[in-house]
Amino acid sequence: MQSTISSAAVRFAVAYGVLTSAHEVGDYIVQRNSDAVAKGKHGPEGAAACARHVTSYTATQAAALWAADRRFGLGLDWRRAAAGLAVSALTHYVADRCAGHWARTDPDAPLLVRIAHDMGKKDWLTKDPRAGALLDQAWHKGWIGLAAAIAAGHRTQP
């Protein structure tokens, strides 16, 4: 029983590390400047820019997860990996569609800002110029943890 727990923990740790590092690459290096600027705009232009960004972001995470699986023989199930990547992609899209609308003093602002207001973080949002970016990254990395847990789950038997 111990080896099953250990192998699951190792798969999770590797998946989390790989998805998090690929997140940094996909979010900051791979993302096109034009998409970074437009992804929060209202309407089809913003939605298309965000979709392009999330597509390249998810491809970056998928390639990194595939490479780690091959290199370390993790034995990840591709269906679970795809489900984990879908969680990461969907939640990334939700947050990034809000990114261009930071109205940090407005409680009617987008999702992440509303959540922070509801948690009593108004002063932090208005006084710390890094608050928006930190909130965004905390959101992403929290969901990456769930994505890694899904991806690293037990392999289903054929």
Rank of each mutant, 00 (worst) to 15 (best):
C98R: 03
A13D: 05
W78Y: 00
A148I: 05
A133Y: 08
L74Y: 08
S34A: 13
I29R: 12
R114M: 10
H117V: 09
K141W: 05
R32A: 15
T20A: 13
S7L: 06
D96G: 00
A68C: 04
H140T: 07
F72K: 05
L135M: 10
G120M: 08
D27N: 03
G120W: 14
C50N: 15
V14H: 08
R70K: 14
A51I: 14
Q61P: 03
S88R: 09
W139C: 07
A95H: 01
V14F: 04
G142V: 01
A152D: 08
T55G: 12
Y57G: 06
Y93H: 10
V87G: 02
L146H: 03
G142D: 02
G43H: 04
T156V: 15
T55V: 10
G43P: 09
A15H: 01
T20N: 03
I5D: 08
L111N: 02
L76N: 05
A49R: 03
A67C: 03
A82H: 04
Q137I: 06
A81T: 10
R70E: 07
N33V: 06
A13S: 14
A151K: 05
A86M: 06
T105L: 06
K141Y: 12
A116G: 06
G145H: 03
G132H: 09
G145L: 05
G75I: 07
A13T: 11
Q2L: 07
A95Q: 11
R104I: 13
L125E: 08
Q31I: 02
Q61C: 07
A131R: 05
R52H: 15
E24D: 00
G142E: 01
G120R: 13
A47E: 15
G26N: 05
R155S: 11
R32N: 09
W102L: 14
G120Q: 09
A133V: 10
T55E: 11
V18P: 02
K141Q: 01
A15P: 05
D35F: 03
A9Q: 10
L19W: 10
K121D: 09
A148N: 05
W124E: 09
R104Q: 11
D27L: 01
L65W: 02
R114A: 15
K41E: 15
P44M: 13
P129E: 06
A62F: 04
A82M: 10
R71K: 04
T60M: 10
R71M: 03
K41A: 14
L112K: 06
H140E: 05
T60Q: 11
G40R: 12
T20Q: 06
K39H: 12
V87R: 06
A49I: 00
S21N: 04
A99H: 13
H23F: 00
R104S: 05
G40Q: 11
G120T: 14
T20D: 00
C50I: 12
K127F: 02
R32Y: 14
